[in-house]
Simulated assay, not measured.
Amino acid sequence: MSGEVIVVGGGVIGLTTAVVLAESGRRVRVWTRESVQETTSAVAGALWWPYRIEPEALVGDWSLATLRVYEKLAERPQETGVRLVAGVHAHVRLGELGPWAAQVEGLRAAGADELPSGYTEGLWARLPLVDMPVHLDWLRRRFEAAGGVVERRTVGSFAEAAAQAPVVVNCTGLGSRELVPDDRLQPVRGQLVLVENPGIEEWFTAADGASEKTAYVFPQPGRLILGGTAEEGDWRTSPDPATADAIVARCARILPELARARIIGHLVGLRPARSTGVRIESEPLPGGGLLVHNYGHGGAGVTVAWGCAQAAAALAS
């Protein structure tokens, strides 16, 4: 393919889409309001798992396509930020999952000795766990190696990009609420606590998709990430001390050694949830341009990034 494309949005969805386009031969620029490390993606936990994302009929294929990429990237964890790490999803049964689960190697019921005290069932798996600051930098380098350019720029309308390129790809996440506009988008606030790792090597989650309060523990290099929250419609971006205390308390009930872990930081991110699910579709722009949408990934942008990027790139021809 040939021709110039402007991707609006510099998070994991925007950068991954830009990589796919640039490596297919397109001339691609990424316009991003924040630096890559200031995007919501940089805050993510980030465990591969289809969580709080629709439409169910498409999510499985997007997730599996992404899983296959991460499995290869995990061969170079220090460079890519992707590692395959073992852990347990509590309160989850294989029969409750979609057909995609049969293609996740090693996914099985957890044994009693693999579950923390107080838990009676769950699933064991070795899944990609992504160190997002490292991964985002790697994505940017890969994009630039393919000839792409990242530009800091605030966009008031897609017409600004269309004036400079015949194809515009919208990967603005929650920003699409105003830019499209799309009032089906709303934030789902996630607060995390970073602590020194007392020696935990496996991840653990006990997440109820219907609850604002979840419990998860993700061991990342140099830190342990404790979560979390899923507060729909909450635009607050500053950490709440009471919420942080509650997160630590929930996680310490699962792993008591966390009660004494030294806190080293707090993070808040706003997941771009869309009531009707991810939007990947194209529409004409005035003057003959093409606008391709790729937004609304909720809490699973990392999980579906490559699958959605490939689907969006196919519409950008």
Rank of each mutant, 00 (worst) to 15 (best):
239 P>F: 08
146 A>N: 04
117 S>L: 13
159 A>C: 02
54 E>P: 00
283 E>T: 07
54 E>I: 00
130 V>Y: 08
274 R>S: 03
41 S>P: 00
89 H>Q: 15
224 L>W: 08
85 V>C: 11
118 G>F: 11
135 H>A: 08
72 K>R: 15
92 V>W: 10
93 R>S: 13
163 A>P: 02
81 G>V: 04
233 G>Q: 09
52 R>V: 03
235 W>H: 09
188 V>F: 09
109 A>G: 13
315 L>V: 06
81 G>C: 08
283 E>Q: 13
194 L>I: 01
215 A>L: 12
59 V>R: 10
82 V>K: 07
247 I>Q: 01
133 P>M: 00
98 G>T: 08
117 S>M: 08
65 A>E: 15
34 E>P: 08
104 V>F: 13
246 A>C: 04
194 L>D: 12
178 E>P: 00
128 P>D: 13
35 S>F: 05
59 V>L: 12
47 L>V: 06
9 G>L: 06
172 T>C: 14
206 A>E: 14
229 T>P: 02
233 G>F: 07
115 L>Y: 13
44 A>F: 13
108 R>V: 03
111 G>N: 09
316 A>W: 14
224 L>K: 04
291 L>R: 14
128 P>K: 15
273 A>M: 10
104 V>C: 10
295 Y>G: 02
5 V>G: 08
127 L>W: 10
231 E>M: 06
252 A>D: 06
56 E>Y: 13
